[in-house]
Design a protein around this nucleic acid. Structure first.
Length: 222
DNA sequence: GGTACGATTGTCT
DNA sequence: GACAATCGTACCT
């Protein structure tokens, strides 16, 4: 929460808070809340794991090869939602950070559902099997699914108090752990040059680490 | 117009 | 631990 603000931070303050360096913002988002208000219900997730993507200089970022239709929102002002489709089936959600013109964003990797368990469970059931509430938002595609984030919500303003998706930062987390980003290999195994995954140590609502598959490891089909 | 591949997940061994 | 599902995007000719 910006400077110990009691929780009624206005949109402008939140936007300014998010407009800082992505490596500063990302760990401070841990413990924060994301709430979606959609036709089928309201769900709130408390963030336990995120990753920073620094834009055009960052080989792991979707913005590395410049602006495109898909990543355009990342180049805009902070506080907007970047959603993309992955592997044909899944969605992943990011919070745009940094100054206008710089394509930085924070990938929301995992969280704990703290409101709207039934709604989140129903959404997950449409996709596959829900085992426990621990798993509802553990993993970026699961989190996006539980919150109902999809391409229709591309670019929405997370700082708008009356919008469908709202972000409310929490207290500065007491302890944050850092490590390489999941699934990001980088040229020549450079993944560890960018230890930009942040999570709350000991929290069960954190996804399991999976290294990026080695290049060419995927079986060829014909 | 063609193709390789992914900021993932679930299932099977 | 390994692999298929599944399709948009990026990059090539």
């Amino acid at each position: 929460r910006p400077d110990g603000d009691p929780g009624t931070a206005d949109a402008a303050a939140l936007r300014a808070w998010l407009a800082r360096d992505v490596l500063e913002v990302a760990p401070q988002l841990l413990g924060g809340l994301v709430t979606t208000t959609l036709p089928d219900g309201v769900v709130t997730v408390r963030l336990t794991e995120v990753e920073a993507y620094a834009g055009e200089d960052d080989p792991g970022s979707h913005a590395f090869r410049g602006r495109s239709l898909r990543n355009a929102v990342m180049f805009g002002p902070a506080g907007h939602l970047y959603v993309y489709r992955h592997m044909g089936l899944h969605h992943c959600a990011n919070v745009v950070t940094g100054t206008d013109g710089r394509a930085a964003a924070v990938l929301l990797r995992a969280g704990e559902v703290v409101e709207g368990h039934d709604v989140a469970r129903a959404r997950r059931l449409r996709r596959g099997v829900v085992r426990t509430d621990l798993d509802l938002a553990r993993g970026p595609a699961r989190l996006a699914d539980a919150l109902g984030l999809h391409l229709d919500l591309y670019g929405v303003d997370l700082t708008d108090p009356s919008g469908p998706v709202r972000l409310v930062p929490g207290e500065a987390p007491a302890d944050v752990r850092t490590g390489p980003r999941v699934g990001v290999g980088g040229e020549g195994g450079d993944a560890h040059r960018y230890p930009w995954r942040f999570w709350l140590p000991g929290d069960p609502h954190v996804s399991v680490y999976r290294a990026a598959p080695a290049p060419g490891s995927r079986a060829r089909r014909r």
